[in-house]
Each structure stands twice: as structure tokens, then as C-alpha cells.
Amino acid sequence: MEKTFKKPQSLRDISTHYCPGCGHGIAHRLIAEVVDELEIRERVIGVAPVGCAVIAYDYWDFDCSEAAHGRALAVATGIKRVRPQNIIFTYQGDGDLAAIGTNETIHAANRGENVTVIFINNAIYGMTGGQMAPTTLLAQKTVTSPEGRQERLHGYPLKISEILASLRAVKYVERVSLDSPKEIIEAKKAVKLAFQNQIDNIGFSLVEILSPCPTYWDMSPKEAMDWIRDVMAKEFPLGRIK
């Protein structure tokens, strides 16, 4: 019998600290698989965010850096400019990329830095206990919006991918989901293209991944997957944006 599916080499064989059913584990694996397939393990440098994925560097078996909250793209800019031969990617959540780091994100994208951004959107702050994020959906209940998000009080869900796609220097933006094996395969293709763009010097590439947070959505892991497909993907439509 031949082994047809195994752990990618770039992923360490240790247990993650994520909750059962969390999408970060899947996203970590996709990145590790892409790094293996493109054979860039010796060249790649990841920039970990602040958020649930703050110790992502413990799980990937390649070089990583840590950034202050929201500043992953600023750190990535510095690394890429000093070491242009390396492949730099940032791995950021919605609280990191779309809230505290909006400034760094928009300006790095506007400068057209040749880096890859993996943006994990789970519509909530996971690490700090389930508070409302800019990407939280209308009427979604969180600990800081117990009656649901209301547009008059809290505004609308921030669609950072569409905002970034409107910038001239941004070359590739795609939104994918982790809600089923089929979508995960699509997500991997998008992640691979985003890395390939950087290798080919095309420019700023961003992949937004809709990811489940069963713990703070107060759902079972399967219900969270269904909720992404039925509710979240309606507000954040999947597909290539640019």
C-alpha cells in the first residue's frame, strides 16, 4: 500500500494549541504543503501575527519572524527589501490585518510590496475571548455585541479584500473558504498561486480564507463549517476579486 496523504514536511509533528475544529490547523497545513510543493522551504520566511496564530512559528518547520500586533506587513516589507531573494509571507487574522493593522496593510499594498499575505477571516476575535471584529457580520452575537452587530452602532462588516483590490499596485486577491474538502482544495490552489506570484516577481498577493471559530461562534465544528457556507459566504462572496 502506498501512502497517498501524509503530513507535509514543513509542518512539525506536534500538537497545536488550537481548539478542536479550528481552521488555523487546516490553513497551516495548506501553507506547509505549498511550501513543500514549490520547494522553497530554504528560502521562505513567515511573519506570524498577534492573535490565535501568535505561535504559528512553533508549528512550521521553516524560518519565521514575529511582528507586533498588526505590523506583520511592515516587518515583511523590511525583510523583503533587505533579502529580496527570500520568499516572505505574512499570516494574519482579521483582528490583526483588518483592525489594528489596517494602516500597515493598506500602505504595504499601495506600495505594491512583493509579498504574500494569508488573511484568516473568522469574523471574531478568537484569542482575546470572542469580541466583535471589524469583519463580524450584521446580527452576529459576540461578547461585545450581545444583541448582535447593528449597522447604526457598529457599522458594516469591513471587506478589506475588496478595498485592497481597488488599489493599482495590488496584483492578486482571492477569497476562499475552508468549509469542505472541495473548498480546501480550492483554497490550496489560491495559496499556491499567491506564492507563485511572489516567486515570479508579480507583486502584492492576498488570499482571504474564511475560517471557522467553533468556540466563539458557539457551535459544533460541523455547524461552524455549515455556517461559513450558508451565512458567511453570502456576506463575503468567494472567488477571485482581482
Partner: peptide, 10 residues
């Protein structure tokens, strides 16, 4: 593919 913790080998 769906396993978040990479526990399954096929």
C-alpha cells in the same frame, strides 16, 4: 483534508 490537526494518513 478536513482534519485540522493532521492526524490522518491515507
Amino acid at each position: 483534508i478536513i482534519c485540522p490537526d493532521c492526524c490522518i494518513e491515507v
